[in-house]
Amino acid sequence: MTTQSEPGHDRPDPSLDAIMSERRQLINLAYRLLGSLAEAEDAVQETYARWYAMSARQQDAIESPGAWLTTVAGRICLNQLRSARARRETYVGEWIPEPLPERTEWISVRPGGATVDPADRVTLDESVNLAFLVVLESMTPAERVAFVLHDVFRYSFAEVAEIVGRTPAACRQLASSARRRIRAAQPSATPAAQRAGIVRDFKQAWEAKDIDALIGLLDPDATAIADGGGLAITFLHPIEGGEQIAHAWVEIARRRPGNMTLLERTVNGQPGLVAQQDGVTVSVFAFEVEGDRIKHIWVVRNPEKLRRWTTG
């Protein structure tokens, strides 16, 4: 398998810097495969642990260390996806992928005071917007891995087959099935400035508790889903229908503490909102806009998924 960058390919004994330079690529891949930056970091750490568990002779025998690291990371992620399905059956409420802030707003300190490696920062593009990641969650583990590796990272099906453990033809079918799911869920294109304006209007209507304005901004068949993970209070089941969501959001506004501030922020590269209490981010809101209406709202309140947003 080839990678987009293969430092060390011309040297029989790759240096530490050459091996570690693959880290950003691996983090970007693992986040798209798992939907969780914490799990992606664990997968990449395990990948490097396996590399350094080999003897120098075994490492020297590997023609392309970058390709080896990608293959191992992909297999680790595939195994995690398979086990995640069982774990999420016991998850409290709905599970939403971990939201990411704009790079300029990325908190650079981990809990405990350790500095975040810049390589941990995920490149934000269309393949990480929350709507896209939610569709990936509906796929089988093999479909997700085949699609992300081939359609997002441009690996050949022969290379994908090494990771998934199926034939190239089978991997082609997996990616094709995944592609159909993406197309079926993809909303009509709305210009970025228009999306940002709709989210801004939603924020203003919400703060004003203007239920009619909220209804006008929401698709009649809109859905709102929240993820508290049992660690934060939120609604456990999806709210369906624009009117129902509008009423729920007005009720949230009425109960909102006086020290809570609502801010416009970029969420996974798309216009979104965050709620801060005493400067600490306690909720992140991501939106899918179709035409001139909001079709989906995702609310993440699980504090374990908000660590990149706040040091509190």
Rank of each mutant, 00 (worst) to 15 (best):
D13M: 15
Q80L: 10
R195I: 06
Q25Y: 07
S177Q: 08
K203M: 12
A193C: 05
T104P: 01
Y31T: 05
A196V: 09
C77N: 02
P12H: 13
P168I: 07
V160L: 08
A84D: 04
V282W: 07
R50D: 01
S15M: 12
V116L: 09
P99R: 05
G165R: 09
F132M: 11
L33Y: 05
G197L: 09
H296P: 06
A43I: 02
P187N: 13
A84L: 10
F202H: 09
L231M: 06
C171K: 04
G74P: 01
M260L: 14
T311R: 05
V109W: 06
D278R: 14
E251P: 02
Q45A: 14
E126R: 14
L37N: 06
D17K: 15
D10Q: 11
E102C: 13
L136A: 14
P101G: 02
D60K: 11
A61E: 10
D201M: 14
N268W: 08
A49W: 03
G272E: 00
W95H: 11
D60W: 08
H296C: 14
T47S: 11
D42R: 12
E39F: 12
A38S: 13
F157V: 00
L69Y: 02
H296R: 15
R87W: 09
P101M: 01
V135C: 07
A73I: 08
T70Y: 05
V122S: 03
L78F: 00
P168V: 06
D125E: 07
A158E: 10
I19C: 03
F153G: 01
V282T: 11
A142Y: 03
A30D: 02
A73P: 03
V274Y: 05
I62P: 00
L133H: 05
E243I: 12
T2V: 08
A18S: 12
G229V: 10
